[in-house]
Design a protein around this nucleic acid. Structure first.
Lengths: 148, 148
DNA sequence: CGCTTTTGCGTGCATATACACAGTAATGCT
DNA sequence: AGCATTACTGTGTATATGCACGCAAAAGCG
């Protein structure tokens, strides 16, 4: 299990750099497709989770999305002000439960085929095997790195 | 090559979401290690490329890092003001050539073992095979997606 | 019941990211 | 040389990201 580092480590060998580069690249592609909806890809994900998970708190959402809680506070802002997500009053007054509004569910429904087109474009470009490999590697990596 | 999408697409199946989640996770790990240097991982990468590539322009750097050019303009700001990178006067007055200062090279040298520790921690957690798989999948993905 | 601890959130600060647009310098062409 | 084109860069605007810190509500305990 002694994974040796390259002899002359370079920033280009950095796992972090590679994952971040890939994230920037795919973000551009998805954003291009989703532009007509006015949603960024992160907003699409956020709206999707809120739509699917029903009433959910920011902390729960942070776990699902592997994002910092305080990041979500801000990322939710445009979605709250545009009325696609709203706060529900919870019994526990500390909890700020979030639900998708009818307009939010409609928007997500409209955005879904555009997301699918982006996903299809990426998967077609990569091919079936690479898509499977990438998803598998990312999935297993997240599991291994969750413990750290 | 007809890569079928899942029957009921969910944001969690999104390639973009997965890559972005992974990027957030690894960023946290590297940042933790690099904190004593005052460098973020993106700044470490930036400084590394400038140190290695010698005089380089923002546009060239943008290609190397797969980042938007205007992002680099801003990302360079803290590195310029802290004096680890400086502008060199080029013959072509449009070009803003960047070089690492002696302080910058020294800082990078100090940061290198901390980066190596982060890289080692990640690779140890993932294991040799998964590390190879992930790097390979990311590498090939970037190639395939570069054309889009 | 009153006090301490825990839990759920938001803010201040700093950086990261990229699109649309604009400015300036070099180049090419007539 | 003069003008159009191309190349290199910065800014305005908006979102994304997370750490340190502080606030309020609920829970636990004597």
């Amino acid at each position: 299990m002694n994974t040796l580092l390259p002899v002359r480590p370079s920033p280009a060998d950095c796992t972090c750099f590679r994952v971040r580069s890939a994230a920037r690249r795919v973000t551009q592609i998805y954003s291009k497709h989703l532009a007509p909806t006015g949603l960024r890809i992160s907003q699409f994900s956020l709206l999707g989770f809120v739509t699917a998970q029903g009433p959910v708190t920011i902390t729960e959402l942070a776990d699902l999305l592997a994002t910092d809680r305080t990041t979500l506070t801000r990322n939710l802002r445009p979605l709250l002000s545009s009325g696609v997500i709203e706060r529900a009053t919870a019994v526990d007054k500390r909890r700020h439960e979030l639900v998708a509004t009818p307009a939010g569910r409609a928007l997500f429904k409209r955005a879904l085929p555009l997301w699918a087109a982006a996903e299809q474009e990426v998967r077609t470009a990569m091919g079936t095997k690479l898509t499977t490999d990438l998803h598998g590697a990312l999935e297993r990596s997240m599991e291994k790195l969750a413990a750290l």
